[in-house]
Every structure is written in structure tokens, then in C-alpha cells.
Amino acid sequence: NLYFQGLKYMVPGARVTRGLDWKWRDQDGSPQGEGTVTGELHNGWIDVTWDAGGSNSYRMGAEGKFDLKLAP
């Protein structure tokens, strides 16, 4: 699974964008943008601060869902 392989790169400072299971509307800005991981992966959740200004926790394994992917 590509998403599980990418988890080791989901570290503080990593750049991310919305992924396969995104369901959080425009939390990442409008139009959709990139963000920066600000915390360690914990119980399948990870913290992100978006360039647009907001921050929140997103699923990276929790509930079998992956809200994020590494930015290109």
C-alpha cells in the first residue's frame, strides 16, 4: 500500500496536500493548498498547519483512512 509506505516520511516539516480520503472541505484553503506537518504521527492521526492559515489533525491510518499525501 503506497500510503503505508509513505508514512515514514510523514514527519514534522514534511509538506502535504489532501489525499485519497479527504473529507474536510476547504480546511486546506480555497483553492486547495499545501501544508506542513507539525507533529508526530499518533494513533493514526497527524497534525498539519496549512499555508492558508488553519491547522488541524488528520487521519493517516486512523479508521483505515488517509486524508493526506506528500506534496509533489
Score class of each variant (00 low, 15 high):
residue 1 N to T: 12
residue 1 N to S: 12
residue 1 N to V: 11
residue 1 N to A: 11
residue 1 N to Q: 12
residue 2 L to A: 15
residue 3 Y to N: 14
residue 3 Y to G: 15
residue 3 Y to T: 14
residue 3 Y to C: 15
residue 4 F to M: 12
residue 4 F to I: 12
residue 4 F to L: 12
residue 4 F to W: 15
residue 5 Q to F: 12
residue 5 Q to S: 12
residue 5 Q to R: 11
residue 5 Q to G: 10
residue 5 Q to H: 14
residue 6 G to Y: 15
residue 6 G to A: 15
residue 6 G to C: 15
residue 6 G to F: 15
residue 6 G to V: 15
residue 7 L to G: 08
residue 7 L to P: 07
residue 7 L to K: 08
residue 8 K to N: 10
residue 8 K to P: 10
residue 8 K to L: 11
residue 8 K to Q: 13
residue 8 K to W: 10
residue 9 Y to M: 10
residue 9 Y to I: 07
residue 10 M to I: 10
residue 10 M to H: 03
residue 10 M to D: 01
residue 11 V to W: 08
residue 11 V to Y: 09
residue 11 V to F: 09
residue 12 P to Q: 09
residue 12 P to F: 10
residue 12 P to Y: 11
residue 13 G to V: 03
residue 14 A to G: 03
residue 14 A to T: 11
residue 14 A to V: 11
residue 14 A to C: 14
residue 14 A to Q: 09
residue 15 R to L: 02
residue 15 R to H: 03
residue 15 R to D: 02
residue 15 R to T: 02
residue 15 R to I: 03
residue 15 R to S: 02
residue 16 V to A: 01
residue 17 T to S: 10
residue 17 T to E: 10
residue 17 T to H: 07
residue 17 T to L: 13
residue 17 T to D: 01
residue 18 R to P: 07
residue 18 R to G: 03
residue 19 G to C: 09
residue 20 L to P: 14
residue 20 L to K: 13
residue 20 L to G: 10
residue 20 L to I: 13
residue 21 D to G: 05
residue 21 D to Q: 04
residue 21 D to P: 03
residue 21 D to T: 04
residue 22 W to C: 06
residue 22 W to S: 04
residue 22 W to Y: 06
residue 22 W to I: 04
residue 23 K to V: 12
residue 23 K to A: 10
residue 23 K to M: 12
residue 24 W to S: 07
residue 24 W to G: 07
residue 25 R to A: 15
residue 25 R to G: 15
residue 26 D to T: 08
residue 26 D to E: 11
residue 26 D to K: 06
residue 26 D to P: 04
residue 27 Q to I: 05
residue 27 Q to C: 08
residue 28 D to L: 04
residue 28 D to Q: 05
residue 29 G to F: 05
residue 29 G to S: 06
residue 29 G to H: 05
residue 29 G to I: 05
residue 30 S to F: 11
residue 30 S to M: 12
residue 30 S to W: 11
residue 31 P to W: 07
residue 31 P to F: 08
residue 31 P to C: 13
residue 32 Q to K: 11
residue 32 Q to L: 10
residue 32 Q to H: 13
residue 32 Q to A: 14
residue 32 Q to F: 12
residue 33 G to F: 06
residue 33 G to P: 05
residue 33 G to I: 04
residue 33 G to V: 05
residue 34 E to C: 15
residue 34 E to L: 15
residue 34 E to K: 12
residue 34 E to A: 13
residue 35 G to W: 02
residue 35 G to F: 03
residue 35 G to E: 01
residue 36 T to Y: 06
residue 36 T to L: 06
residue 37 V to Y: 01
residue 37 V to Q: 02
residue 37 V to T: 04
residue 38 T to N: 08
residue 38 T to K: 08
residue 38 T to S: 10
residue 38 T to Y: 06
residue 39 G to E: 05
residue 40 E to A: 14
residue 41 L to E: 06
residue 41 L to K: 05
residue 41 L to F: 09
residue 42 H to E: 10
residue 42 H to T: 13
residue 43 N to M: 12
residue 43 N to H: 12
residue 44 G to Y: 02
residue 44 G to D: 01
residue 44 G to W: 05
residue 44 G to S: 02
residue 45 W to V: 03
residue 45 W to Q: 01
residue 45 W to E: 00
residue 46 I to M: 07
residue 46 I to S: 00
residue 47 D to P: 13
residue 47 D to S: 14
residue 47 D to G: 12
residue 47 D to V: 14
residue 48 V to M: 00
residue 48 V to C: 02
residue 48 V to I: 06
residue 49 T to S: 10
residue 49 T to V: 12
residue 50 W to E: 00
residue 51 D to I: 03
residue 51 D to L: 05
residue 51 D to C: 04
residue 53 G to S: 03
residue 53 G to E: 02
residue 53 G to P: 00
residue 53 G to R: 01
residue 53 G to N: 03
residue 54 G to C: 14
residue 54 G to A: 08
residue 54 G to Y: 10
residue 55 S to D: 07
residue 55 S to N: 11
residue 55 S to A: 10
residue 55 S to P: 02
residue 56 N to W: 13
residue 56 N to T: 04
residue 56 N to F: 14
residue 56 N to L: 05
residue 56 N to D: 08
residue 56 N to G: 15
residue 57 S to A: 12
residue 57 S to C: 15
residue 57 S to Y: 10
residue 58 Y to H: 02
residue 59 R to G: 02
residue 60 M to E: 01
residue 60 M to V: 08
residue 60 M to C: 09
residue 60 M to T: 01
residue 61 G to F: 02
residue 61 G to S: 04
residue 61 G to M: 00
residue 62 A to C: 08
residue 62 A to Y: 14
residue 62 A to D: 04
residue 62 A to L: 04
residue 62 A to Q: 04
residue 63 E to F: 11
residue 63 E to Y: 12
residue 63 E to L: 08
residue 63 E to G: 12
residue 64 G to K: 06
residue 65 K to M: 09
residue 65 K to L: 04
residue 65 K to S: 09
residue 65 K to T: 03
residue 65 K to Q: 07
residue 66 F to Y: 11
residue 66 F to V: 06
residue 67 D to A: 02
residue 68 L to V: 07
residue 68 L to N: 00
residue 68 L to C: 02
residue 68 L to H: 01
residue 68 L to E: 01
residue 68 L to W: 01
residue 69 K to V: 12
residue 69 K to W: 12
residue 69 K to H: 09
residue 69 K to Y: 13
residue 69 K to A: 14
residue 70 L to R: 07
residue 70 L to K: 05
residue 70 L to N: 04
residue 71 A to F: 07
residue 71 A to L: 12
residue 72 P to H: 13
residue 72 P to D: 13
residue 72 P to Y: 13
residue 72 P to I: 13
residue 72 P to T: 13
residue 72 P to C: 15
